[in-house]
Amino acid sequence: MAELTYRDAVAAGIAQEMERDEDVVFLGEDIAAAGGVFKATVGLLDKFGPERVRDTPIAEQAILGAAMGAAMTGLRPIAEIMFSDFFAVCWDIVVNEIAKTRYMTNGQINLPLVIRTANGGGLRFGAQHSQSIENWAMMIPGLKVVAPSSPADVKGLLAAAIRDPDPVIFFEHKALYPTKGEVPDGEHVEELGKAKILRDGDDLTIAALAAMVPRAVEAAERLKDEHGIECTVVDIRSLVPLDTQTLFREVSKTGRLFTVEENPRLCGWGAELSSLVSEEIFWELDAPIVRITTPHIPLPAADQLEDLTIPSVDRITDTILKSLG
């Protein structure tokens, strides 16, 4: 085991896959010579050369179109969209082209590609560089959607996404880039579509994603230390495919579900989880499901405002305590 930052795990995952498969190529804005605006791709240009690691113009439709065309003719491209907010300027390529082409062509075209992007808030960047948009991707048939919370998962899930034969949107959380964690030595590949139980407790279940995972874990620790409440924490990790089996098992065990979502409230991923639990294991519940989300507003920029907007450890803890009465 080596300790890596979340940021270094990105480059490690890409390098691992580029070494084993020469069809893996990588393109995006500032990703090669500059090593990425978040320094998550440092060293890849030197290691693999400019034919495989290519800087592009600021042209997101060109980036994703190029990835799609290369994927349908035999490569396994990784494309970077620098901030997930920029999906809004190339969403046609994602939704109308990449997501639908395999189905529309009756399976004639495969699209083994990964789109990496820096998602989420916490860096005071304001409403156009801080959104959590994983639910945009989740609602489109034909896209797999992954959002890791730890360096080990960044490397392992990114490797799995690159090997996957279908398009995967890979949401890295920009506030997690400096965080550190143990990453297994040697080749590391996780399985897509598996949630991970980070903490086991009998009183309630918290489902969280990406940057909300460490906050959920901290809230769970506080609830135990200060109130003797035992929480299970499930890191959802993959929205599509969704590991409903693990979710249902853990909710059935505790009888209570809290979701912690960074997205604005409406149609967040927690709404789908809530719907599934209500429809399929309603009688296992002891109390209504509670969703803890960002309010349904654009994100403000200033420290104090942003901190009060995105679910915090305090808010998670308080909401749970209030709900338990």
């Binding site: 190529v25 034919e51 495989r52 439709q61 060109a62 980036i63 994703l64 179109g65 190029a66 990835a67 799609m68 065309g69 290369a70 994927a71 349908m72 003719t73 035999g74 490569l75 491209p77 046609d92 390529i93 109308n96 082209e97």
Partner: peptide, 17 residues
């Protein structure tokens, strides 16, 4: 317009390989 970048991507494959 969507297929212009996509055709470009196929050409990228031809160039790379």
């Amino acid at each position: 317009g969507a297929h212009l970048p996509i055709a470009m991507g196929a050409a990228w494959k031809a160039q790379y390989k």
